[in-house]
Amino acid sequence: SVRTACEIYEATRYVTGAKEFNTAAFEFILRNAMKVFQDNSFVKLSTAAVAEILSRDDISVHSEVDIFDAMLRWHHTDEDAYLIGTSTKTRNLRKCIKESVLNCIRFPNFEPFVYCGLIQRWRILSKDEEDYLYSIWAGT
């Protein structure tokens, strides 16, 4: 099951003798990513595990929005981020999201109207970064 796959993947990450189990669980997760994202075992994964999953080219998702939603869902249960967020009394998502996880989001892969409609309101990118993004979409 999805839960078992996440648990095996996490538990065997640093076990040299369990490479095959780890690879099998990882591939199962990539193939069933949409189900994995919905499961409670997903939000319990470590930062390194989540970054590894979300950074893959061959993850089975419909669009970059699925990756973004998964990132947000995982982030909201990230205790470290919660502590940073409350200690600095900031709601700045950019400061709270772990860099390795943020780096998994491929902003140029969003449709511009999707970015403006769904993603922009999270205020993750700076003005300069957005300008750069628009220049990519404009094909310059």
Partner: peptide, 15 residues
Amino acid sequence: LKSRPFLKNSPRTYI
């Protein structure tokens, strides 16, 4: 800016 990985136009195969 170009050094920021999340701004790279990277291939991902969507299903």
